[in-house]
């Protein structure tokens, strides 16, 4: 049996080793969820069917995305970045398995652990204070698939950003650009459905929408499930293929830092 499930399991354990920290972050997500919810309620009071969402959809979208943001890591970053900067990536590179597969397994474990520890508080609080939409079992299953694909897309994007470290001595610029793009085009700042005209159309086709907007639409029943999953899967495949190529290129002109 391959080592990858074990890597994922170890990552899961590592990220659940300190549940208190994760729980605090879950509470922070909840507080921001409440703030966002009241802003959205105010907006929807002015424009009751903005972007095809009613106010319940908007509030559900808000708490759902607060629950997901940790797992799909919209604020970016990955342990691999620091390992490339310090040269610890040398350790990853002499293992008898590829770099991409190893870190993908690690990230899957991390995403599941984060979902488990951080999704509860925002969803529960939202459901108690507001009236949230509950999905049918079929929708819930479709949403689970959309979430899994969102994790893959998120991983591939962050992995590509991390690998940029092999070429750049300083990654702050790339991290910054990536953060802005992710927050804005994932639907995290505002649901993409409220973006006007061409910007909204373009945002819907970009990979970042696969992180938050598409899974939320699947949950809310705003989108054809097969089309949504195919869209995410296509981006996941394309980005992972790119990640594979960039890994190969990096290995050829690789500079590992430190003695």
């Amino acid at each position: 049996m391959s080592v990858h499930p074990w890597v994922a399991w170890y990552a899961f354990r590592r990220h659940t080793a300190y549940p208190l920290g994760a729980f605090t972050e879950g509470l922070t997500n909840t507080v921001f969820g409440l703030l966002r919810a009241y802003i959205l309620i105010a907006v929807w009071a002015e424009r009751p069917s903005l972007g095809g969402y009613d106010v319940t959809d908007a509030v559900t979208f808000c708490f759902l995305t607060q629950a997901l943001l940790g797992a799909v890591q919209v604020f970016g970053g990955m342990d691999l970045t620091a390992r490339i900067r310090t040269g610890d990536v040398a350790i990853d590179l002499y293992r008898p398995v590829g770099l991409l597969g190893w870190w993908l397994a690690d990230d899957v474990g991390r995403a599941l652990a984060t979902l488990l520890l951080r999704a509860g508080p925002p969803l529960l609080t939202g459901a108690i204070i507001f009236d949230l939409r509950a999905p049918s079992p079929a929708r819930a299953a479709a949403f689970a698939a959309a979430f899994a694909l969102a994790v893959l897309v998120s991983f591939a994007l962050r992995y590509l950003v991390a690998l940029a470290m092999f070429w750049l001595s300083d990654d702050q610029g790339v991290q910054m650009i990536s953060l802005v793009l992710t927050l804005f085009f994932s639907g995290m700042v505002l649901p993409l459905v409220v973006f006007p005209g061409a910007l909204g159309t373009a945002a819907g086709w970009l990979p970042w929408s696969a992180l938050i907007q598409v899974p939320a639409d699947v949950y809310l029943g705003k989108r054809d499930v097969a089309g949504a999953l195919a869209f995410q899967a296509a981006w996941a495949a394309a980005l992972l293929a790119a990640a594979h190529l960039v890994t190969r290129a990096a290995r050829h002109r690789l500079v590992v830092q430190g003695g």
Binding site: R14, A17, G87, I91, R95
Partner: peptide
């Protein structure tokens, strides 16, 4: 990767071990 199965490597300043486990 083929070679990695046949050799062992230790870098004194770095660790292969899982920090939290």
């Amino acid at each position: 990767t083929t070679l990695a199965r046949r050799i062992g490597v230790v870098f004194g300043q770095r660790t292969t071990l899982w920090w939290d486990l």
